[in-house]
Design a protein around this nucleic acid. Sequence first.
RNA 1: CGGGGUGUAGCGCAGCCUGGUAGCGCAACUGCUUUGGGAGCAGUAGGUCGUAGGUUCGAAUCCUGCCACCCCGACCA
Length: 581
Amino acid sequence: MKASQFHLHTQREVPADAEIVSHRLMLRTGMIRKLTSGIYTWTPLGLKVLRKVEQVVREEMDASGCLEMLMPAVQPSELWTETGRWGDFGPLLLKMTDRAGREYAFGPTHEEVITDFARFELKSYKQLPICLYQIQTKFRDEIRPRFGVMRAREFLMKDGYSFHMDDDCLADFYQVMHETYSRIFSRLGLKFKAVRADSGAIGGAMSHEFHVLAESGEDQIAHVPDGSFAANVELAEALAIGERQLPGEELQLVDTPEARTIADLVEGFKLPVEKTVKTLIVHAAEDAEHALIALLVRGDHELNAVKAEKLPQVAGPLKMADEETIRAAIGAGPGSLGPVKLPIPMVIDRTVAAMSDFGAGANIDDKHYFGINWERDVELPEVADLRNVVAGDPSPDGDGKLELIRGIEVGHIFQLGKKYSESMNAVIMDEQGKARHPAMGCYGIGVSRIVAAAIEQNHDDRGIIWPEPIAPWEVVILALNQHKAHRVREKAREIYDALRVAGVEVLVDDRPLRPGVMFADMELIGIPHQLVIGERGLDQGVVEYRQRGGESREIPVGEAVGFLREAIDLPNQAQPLRPMQ
RNA sequence: CGGGGUGUAGCGCAGCCUGGUAGCGCAACUGCUUUGGGAGCAGUAGGUCGUAGGUUCGAAUCCUGCCACCCCGACCA
């Protein structure tokens, strides 16, 4: 490709609303253009990268025996009513009405459509197992779209669905998908981690998320460096810290007029933060004995909303009580709450249950109890895992200590089981001629998000540094002043042709620009290999090679093509597997 | 959804308080010079000032409604 014939439109200045580096660089390079909130146009440059990601995903899915298809983006409400998700999916679902008043959703995912397809297409155990997938535009009406295509409303996703006669077959294929995903992210040149996402809310179902590791990631991952444990913080099990000691202090009521927060208590009364307890008041489930429920965590710990919502007594979604409600029920404000003589039910975190001689509010304004001990001063309430894990916590799985890192979720695989095949009554005849609901798995990859995640992980102050497999071009030839220098033009043309014949994806920058602009542009758009051809070098019979971000070196003109072919990684193709036989 | 903020040329911004013919930088276009790290000079083009109404002799500027976009949102208990 000649740069003069491509639409390159880079910018030095960035729209003020771009916050993270991938968003800024995608706008500055001109890869994307915002149409409206959370909705983007992919320009020719951006699309080249998007298609490369897509192609790697497609090749690996195909190599694992999956079959590509394409389902409609627009789906009738009836299917969603069947599974109950027309309401359950909530405001994320973009709904629309046609001229006859029929209701539709723009698909945020396709379990309903694929299950509907399956109940017509899949009749016999002889057709199973099977995995069908598509790469398609989805729409989720996010509350707050941000970070460009990282959290967009419209996005490109690969979604796959597998069907199996039994759970064992599903579990085996799930493992195949786990490996397939690992190969995909490896081939894309990304540093990633597979983490456990749910250990069994639905009877033995398994789920893993795949995260691209990056400081700017929206998700926190707890893991043990030896690889024995990795999970999203939302779900990582928090064990009790320490064991409960016998009471060593008397219970005492203390005047604490200025102490509204844990920090105030720690500073004003020399109470170690590990000896304090936070009392959080949330709304209870509708059928609970009281309208409110108290959740207690240690002063320096955070409540985990996902875990709290799983408690049957707690209203979902989690809703904190406001001060007025708290006063009406307890008679004290939020700064003075605690377990002693608390008039509403409570659930305490495992670590809180292991504490002794601790301080907490007295449920009287401006007073706290110090030296509180379970059983002696308060009956031990229900104990549950309520908090987020913190760095240094014991691993729930083995010996190590947890570390926290950040990641961008780019893939998610899940054993669905029979949830959809049962609710939509998809049945398959087994070998005994008996109708059975197939077990299903689903497997998603955020294709457009991967582009942004790759940039988050690979950039410097000059721009993007593409991993070779997804770079828009493998090589760029900078033909300095070629519009004036015939020798440069001819040599650039010669090397360009030779590289193309050799199957290398090459861009030649033949624009009549000053060299500095060309350097800056090509580094901004992040092409991995750069060949500079100028009169100065040609006088000495050399051209200059530089890897993006690396040092430059001179290459004799005649060896340039051979050198580049060596420098570029051999194409890493998918290795065919036959997992489903 | 709640709170806050912003809408002026493709991008970044000034002008608004104190009403009087809409400006700057970058980008774009033309010409000349320049040419190994985002050039210089000269010139050109581009804006219903988000939108609807109101006040006024006169509104980007003051007032009201609407729309769009952005940021923050248990973690102070």
